[in-house]
């Protein structure tokens, strides 16, 4: 288990770096789009950029992990059970890191937006869990059904990319009054979101274990 923790923890930091990079790019776009730069206001919306980056990176990262690291670790003598446990440890850890970063920023830069931001953390958790499960399912599908998986991944990556693009174009508006409006929406946790998150996770784990049990190592 020690090697598992070592490998997946390191991988978590690498992915965190990627998310921070995406968030930084969005923050720069937002800063340029805003009339009269208010650093404090910018800081309070940075966690949202972080979340967008996290959704994107976790989705792409998980599908990549499923196709690369899972077979690689199997080829190095890890059991399927441990590979699955390690992978889920990574997924839990990166979501925890993201939530912690968001919370930290909002606590350090208090304000109207920050207050609703802190209240929207459960929603963000659900969204990240769903993104994580979707990414993993994409990877599993790709491993099992090469071409169908590829098409699905392209579609979802397009979706993810579109989202980032949309977020980028919106970034300028983020510092306007609408920020609060959007943030408030997020703060209200609809009843079905946790249910959807749980369902996605269950579907993902079941599907993953079903395939992993018989998976062939092809590198």
């Amino acid at each position: 288990m020690k090697r598992n923790l070592k490998f997946w923890t390191r991988y978590t930091w690498e992915c965190t770096g990627m998310v921070l990079a995406v968030a930084a790019v969005l923050a720069v776009i937002a800063a340029f789009g805003a009339e009269g730069l208010d650093l404090r206001a910018l800081a309070t919306v940075v966690p949202y950029f972080l979340c967008i980056g996290a959704v994107f990176c976790i989705m792409v990262g998980n599908s990549g992990t499923q196709t690369l690291y899972v077979p690689l670790l199997l080829s190095m003598g890890e059991t399927r059970r441990n590979v699955l446990l390690g992978f889920h440890y990574f997924r839990a850890l990166i979501i925890a890191v993201m939530l912690a970063l968001c919370a930290a920023v909002w606590l350090l830069a208090p304000g109207e937006v920050s207050a609703v931001g802190l209240r929207s953390i459960p929603t963000i958790l659900c969204v990240l869990v769903i993104a994580s499960a979707m990414g993993s399912i994409m990877g599993t599908v790709f491993v099992r059904w090469k071409w169908a998986g590829m098409i699905l991944i392209i579609l979802l990556c397009g979706l993810g990319g579109g989202m980032v693009g949309f977020a980028g174009s919106m970034a300028g508006n983020f510092l306007t009054a609408r920020t609060f409006e959007i943030a408030s929406h997020l703060a209200a946790l609809p009843w079905w979101l946790p249910a959807a998150a749980l369902a996605a996770l269950a579907l993902d784990v079941g599907f993953q274990w079903m395939l992993l049990r018989r998976q062939e190592v092809k590198l």
Binding site: S75, G77, E78, T79, R81, N82, V217, L219
Partner: peptide, 16 residues
């Protein structure tokens, strides 16, 4: 699925 046995085996694949 037995780590105890697997720890004694290394199958170094032909990388492709």
């Amino acid at each position: 699925e037995n780590r105890k046995s697997l720890a004694k085996i290394c199958c170094s694949r032909e990388l492709n």
